[in-house]
Design a protein around this nucleic acid. Structure first.
Length: 1060
RNA sequence: GGGCCCGUAGCAUAGCUCGGUGGUGCGCCCGGCUGAUAACCGGGAGGUCAUGCGUUCGAAUCGCAUCGGGCCCA
């Protein structure tokens, strides 16, 4: 053991500990140590390689690390491979920006191969940056061996999974409407669409009814550019529609729309007169034919037979008639398929109209809105603006469009029930994350469009014959090599694009151009990380995962994508338990974002308070599943608690070292059995703190098992502050100062040692650095080299004494009350008091005070601490007049009587009225008879007695001084000042001094001199002490002379270090 | 528009499952200790428990509605 500095420098300690771990390969050694244990298969949700971790990412990994360290200490062989998500559009967009590209044409010109190389470099560079950031957080995951979604083996896992989907008929090639980003020129998943407000046109358009002159259907839309793709108008069967005769500026026409909406629509169209002529239900309208108002300008529209159809999604708003373009809307598409409407999409991947769109050809769709309105001419009935929520591409923020294209789908909707059944088998923390949130999300599951028309991703392993259109899904690289007769060194684009497979029909199969949705990459992580399908042994042994934990945003993300892929491939959930955690927000509960300028980075926190404090803070400040409102005050509070831990640890070290203390050990290994075998000899405070640390261990263990990390860490912080620092250390201090060999001191050392070892064991999963540092200093010669190799210890019931814990709680409550009462009586703690009395009705309190009497006396600085059951006879009564009764009984003498009652002996009045008699008050000649109705009583304390409530009782402190008490009080004042001066001279604890004390007041001087000279000399380690009455400073030359004012008495004290 | 979570002193939170005088920490004010000392400890002030309605003898807690924040969805 060595002494440690008072300046608790977390950063320095953490740097040293991490350096120690590095040079001793501690992580590896710990893994080796647990390698024979039962496996605990954890799958790291792969962060996307953006290069910069934020507070939320740090929190995520801290939760993982804490729980995994807990599992390791419990003997589990933890599969802890880290992972990174390294493909996808976000990286492509970053690289495009770096290269100054604005469209896919730029990429194709640059060369797909070159572009992918840039993306790969970007991903790998960022992965390395993030490795370092995670490791600086003390995260013990296998980073050097992290799974990366870009490796051939990983790609193969995705291919294999798709092959299973095809086998089971879950893969579908479909011409369907998808969310489409016109800038990225790719389909994007529902999950990749972000919504915010956009302002768009809101227009009412007249469609001429076939064969009826001057008669129209009125529809409403916010996307005029979809009108060139209109094929139908939808109505609700139940709604009532009306034929309206409308007149505007002398022009008359007939309009059809939902009857309840006539007024609002015609007002918008600025019609001066209108009149409903007849009504029909929607069902009656079905089958009506109409012409497109754009037939002239758009050749495509000539081909289409437009008609009215019924749909259940039509709402009673706008006109009650909905424009249907099955190529540009999801509902439209579904309806179009059902009604066998033409599904037309005259828009290319870049969002520009094709030649079939006639006059609009080449125009970008959103720019074409005005052109369409112009082209509508008289058919445009009204136009205004509307601001509504609109979808955008998650990466480039471009407003999306809906576009019917040929895509690949996994039929997730067909396995919905199986997924729901699997979700119920998973253990969720908290329970509602699964039963409510995730469950509801899966109920809505739609087919999953997995194809993207991009470059940096896992190529979809589907080869299509250019002759017979038959397709084949390739499951492994070996299979591809065999089928194609080519070696495949890298399964990425563009290389795989050039690999062809001969078809049975004699034609040649080419790979489809698409890559996977990047969410599919991480979806296969639980088996890809085990090297499956190339290797199967580990998979068979370990899969599915024992545990995963991620943020609540992953409900729709990784929790779902994994479940979907796994249910398709294996028919079951890929994880057994899931902890869903919250989001890291700023102090106001707002999302941290660069634009708001409220971002706090983990580095910033670490720079101020260190890693362990950050870890302890994020774990203790909120429940994992609640959002974390980051707050610097909270960080400072946790920092203080950790600092107190450091002080508690540091405090006994100098004494232990001075006494060459070694804890009981066997063969150089700490033997904690000492505590159990000596328990009955230990003083109560030792037995109490031993009991407490075990009780706490039980709570921490139970909480951690249930992912209640906030409860575990709060319990620990509370133990450090309340039990250790504020109580045990205060009680045990005098025993540290005992000279020479002493059993009591030895007990204190062994107890402190035990408690510290147990405490750092409990804290190790959460604060791995400071616990390692303390352990490194405390450990015995042959103890394991690292704290993290020790086994987890929960509560040892044989060391718990609930009765003693409760008794001590009462003693603490007593202590608080005494301090409170002393404060009221203005008697400092340094001054002894004669007696403290506790009045209580509870036997428990009496027993506790009897058992812990020495502690109570010491804490109260009292000569006696006694318990009175029921009522203490020194408490008197004070009578208070009841004016209402006095007025009735004494009339105009009331006020006189009031004064008399207040001045009278309350005890006497109470005795008389309590016995049913009256009490006579006299004033001059007047006599007044006081009855029970005239007075109420309050307690009256004798002078010098002050009280304060404690748990189940009241504490009374007698602060009256006797010469004896006064002598000790002054003696203590003198001692304190000499000690203060010792410190000023920077003397060592064991140094001796010579002292001269000149006291200006003769009475005080004699009082103290009579009995206290030896006591003072001993306390301050004085070889010579002279105490004399004088008004002048002592003449002799002392190293330090100071004048003091002690409670109004002038004293001059000189001290010097004595020669040894 | 829908699902889930959250709202308790200046700040951060416990209590809510299962109704019975709202605790704690930080900060603030006052004090103590002085062999943990740039440390430690005690006391005090500070609350419409987001708002409203309801159930109940009694609601922070149960129900409904509204408002605000977060995540997700349409």
């Amino acid at each position: 053991m060595k002494e440690v500095t008072a300046n608790f420098n977390t950063k320095e300690i953490e740097r040293e500990v991490q350096e120690y771990w590095r040079t001793h390969e501690t992580y590896k050694a710990v893994k080796q140590h647990r390698s024979a244990g039962k496996a605990f298969f954890f799958v790291d949700g792969p962060p996307y390689t953006t290069g910069q971790i934020h507070l939320g990412t740090a929190w995520n990994k801290i939760i993982k690390d804490s729980l995994l360290r807990y599992q390791r200490m419990n003997g589990r062989n933890v599969i802890d491979r880290a992972g990174y998500d390294m493909h996808g559009l976000p990286i492509e967009v970053k690289v495009e920006q770096a290269l100054g590209f604005s469209s896919k044409k730029d990429i194709e010109k640059f060369g797909i191969g070159h572009f992918i190389e840039k993306c790969r470099e970007f991903a790998i560079r960022n992965k390395k940056l993030m490795d370092a950031q995670f490791e600086s957080l003390g995260i013990w995951l296998d980073f050097p061996n992290a799974y990366q979604t870009i490796t051939p083996g990983y790609v193969e896992a995705a291919w294999w999974t798709l092959a299973r989907a095809e086998e089971k008929g879950m893969l579908e090639r479909g011409f369907r409407v998808v969310n489409w980003c016109p800038r990225c020129e790719t389909a994007i998943a529902d999950a990749e669409v972000e919504y915010w407000d956009e302002t768009d046109p809101s227009v009412f358009v007249k469609f001429p009814i076939k064969g009826k002159a001057n008669e129209f259907l009125v529809i409403w839309t916010t996307t005029p550019w979809t009108l060139p793709a209109n094929v139908a108008v939808a109505v609700s069967k139940e709604f009532v529609y009306a034929r309206v005769h409308a007149e505007k500026n002398g022009h008359k026409e007939y309009l059809w729309m939902a009857e309840p909406l006539i007024k609002s629509v015609l007002k918008k169209g600025r019609y001066q007169k209108f009149e409903a002529l007849e009504t029909k239900t929607g069902a009656d309208l079905v089958g009506w034919e109409y012409d497109s108002p754009l037939a002239e300008q758009v050749p495509l529209q000539h081909e289409i037979a437009h008609r009215v159809v019924a749909a259940d999604f039509v709402a009673m708003e706008n006109t009650g008639m909905v424009h249907i373009a099955p190529g540009h809307g999801w509902d439209d598409y579904v309806l179009g398929t059902k009604e066998k409407l033409a599904i037309v999409c005259p828009v290319d991947g870049a969002g520009k109209f094709l030649p079939v769109a006639g006059i609009f050809a080449g125009k970008f769709v959103r720019d074409a809105n005005q052109d369409v309105l112009d082209a509508l001419g008289d058919h445009l009935m009204a136009t205004e603006k509307i601001t509504h929520r609109y979808g955008h591409c998650w990466r480039c923020k471009t407003p999306i469009i809906f576009r019917a294209t040929s895509q690949w789908f996994l039929k997730a909707s067909e396995i919905r029930d199986l997924m729901l059944a699997e979700v119920e088998k998973v253990t969720w923390y908290p329970e509602w994350a699964g039963s409510a949130r995730f469950y509801d999300w899966i109920k809505e599951a739609r087919d999953w469009c997995i194809s993207r028309q991009r470059y940096w991703g896992i190529p979809i392993p589907v080869w299509v014959c250019d002759k017979c259109d038959k397709y084949r899904v390739i499951g492994t690289i070996a299979e591809l090599e065999k089928a194609s007769g080519t070696t495949v060194p890298d399964p990425h684009r563009p290389f795989v694009d050039s690999v062809t497979i001969p078809c049975e029909c004699g034609g040649e199969m080419h790979r489809v151009g698409d890559i996977f949705d990047v969410w599919f990459d991480s979806a296969v992580a639980s088996w890809a990380t085990l090297g499956f399908p190339a290797k199967t042994a580990e998979f068979e042994k370990l899969w599915p995962a024992d545990f995963i934990t991620e943020g609540q945003d992953q409900t729709r993300g990784w929790f779902y994508s994994q479940l979907g892929a796994s249910t398709i491939a294996f028919g079951k959930a890929p994880y057994k338990s899931v902890c869903m955690h919250g989001f890291a927000l700023d102090a106001e509960g707002k999302k941290m974002s660069k634009s708001l300028g409220n971002v706090v980075s983990p580095e910033e926190v670490i720079a101020k308070v260190g890693v362990d404090v950050l870890r302890f803070y994020v774990l203790s400040t909120s429940a994992p599943w609640d959002d974390l409102k980051f707050n610097w005050d909270g960080v400072a509070t946790v920092n203080r608690a950790v600092n107190i831990l450091w002080n508690v640890y540091r405090f006994p070290l100098p004494y232990m070292i001075l006494d060459k203390f070694e804890p009981q050990s066997k063969d150089g290994v700490w033997d904690k059995a000492y505590i159990a075998s000596h328990l009955h000899e230990l003083p109560d405070e030792d037995r109490w703190i031993i009991s407490r640390v075990n009780t706490v261990a039980g709570i921490v263990d139970a909480a951690t098992k249930e992912c209640q990390l906030h409860r575990a860490t709060r319990e620990l912080i509370n133990f450090i502050l309340e039990d250790l620092s504020r109580w045990y250390v205060q009680l045990v201090r005098p025993r540290m100062w005992l000279e020479g060999e002493s059993e009591q001191k030895r007990f204190a050392y062994e107890t402190i040692y035990y408690v510290m070892r147990r405490l750092i064991g409990l804290m190790a999963p959460f604060c791995p650095h400071i616990t390692e540092e303390i352990y490194g200093n405390l450990r015995c010669r042959n103890d394991p080299a690292s704290m993290h190799m020790l086994d987890w210890e929960t509560c040892d019931d044989s060391l718990v004494n609930a009765e003693l814990e409760h008794a001590m709680e009462l003693a603490r409550s007593f202590d608080d009350a005494v301090q409170n009462a002393r404060q009221a009586g203005k008697r400092k703690l340094r001054w002894p008091v004669d007696e403290v009395v506790i009045v209580t009705a509870k036997e428990e309190v009496k027993a506790a005070v009897a058992r812990l009497n020495a502690i109570c006396m010491d804490r109260a600085n009292a000569r006696k601490v006694t318990v009175v059951m029921g009522r203490w006879d020194r408490i008197g009564w004070h009578a208070e007049p009841v004016m209402k009764a006095l007025g009735k009984g004494f009339g105009k003498d009331s006020f006189k009587v009031k004064g008399l009652i207040e001045a009278a002996d309350g005890n006497a009045i109470k005795a008389a009225t309590g016995a049913g008699q009256t009490y006579t008050l006299t004033s001059g000649d007047a006599k007044f008879e006081i009855g029970a109705e005239h007075v109420t009583f309050t307690e009256k304390l004798p002078a010098d007695i002050f009280s304060a409530p404690m748990e189940d009782g009241t504490v009374y402190v007698d602060v009256a001084l006797t010469p004896d008490l006064e002598a000790e009080g002054y003696a203590r004042e003198v001692i304190r000042r000499i000690q203060e001066m010792r410190r000023q001279l920077d003397l060592a604890v064991e140094d001796f001094i010579t002292v001269d004390v000149a006291v200006a007041d003769k009475r005080i001087c004699d009082l103290v001199g009579a009995n206290w000279k030896p006591g003072i000399a001993e306390e301050v380690r004085a070889k010579n002490l002279s105490l004399h009455n004088a008004n002048e400073p002592a003449a002799s030359a002392y190293q330090l002379i100071k004048e003091w004012d002690v409670e109004g008495i002038a004293m001059t004290i000189g001290i010097s270090k004595a020669s040894p």
